[in-house]
Amino acid sequence: MDLITPEFGLVFWTAITFLFLLLILRKFAWKPILGAVSDREEGIKNALASAENARKEMENLTADNERILKEARLEREALLKEAREIKEQMIANAETEAQEKANKIIEKAQAAIESEKKSAMAELKNHVAGLSVEIAEKVVRQELSNKDKQLELVESMLGEATLN
């Protein structure tokens, strides 16, 4: 029976001591310890979050880089293509120009030939006319002597003239 009757004195001292202990430990122990622990946990959480952010940023960066690279590659290809096109065009242009020039030269040459020919023909005609006149003169003279010979001569002369 003694064992389970609370002694008033011990209840009194326990209450006082416990309250004292609670107040002191709350102020000087639990607050700093729990504070430090939760600070650390907060710190770890933050560090993890920032690491995650950094990772994401990194990912973004690499994605950006890749995008830029891709763009650059595309641009280069486009440039190359353009250059090739320009080159081809230039070549084509040059060809056509050359062709045109050649054609013109040929045309000129032909025209020149034509005019030369014409002038030559004209000269020839003049010549022929001159010759004809001469021949006619000679024929006319010979006719006077020999009609047959005259005819023969004209004939031969004309034959010669057509050859020219």
Partner: peptide, 9 residues
Amino acid sequence: GNIAFTCTL
């Protein structure tokens, strides 16, 4: 193991 102590708590 004293009932006064446990009683107080």
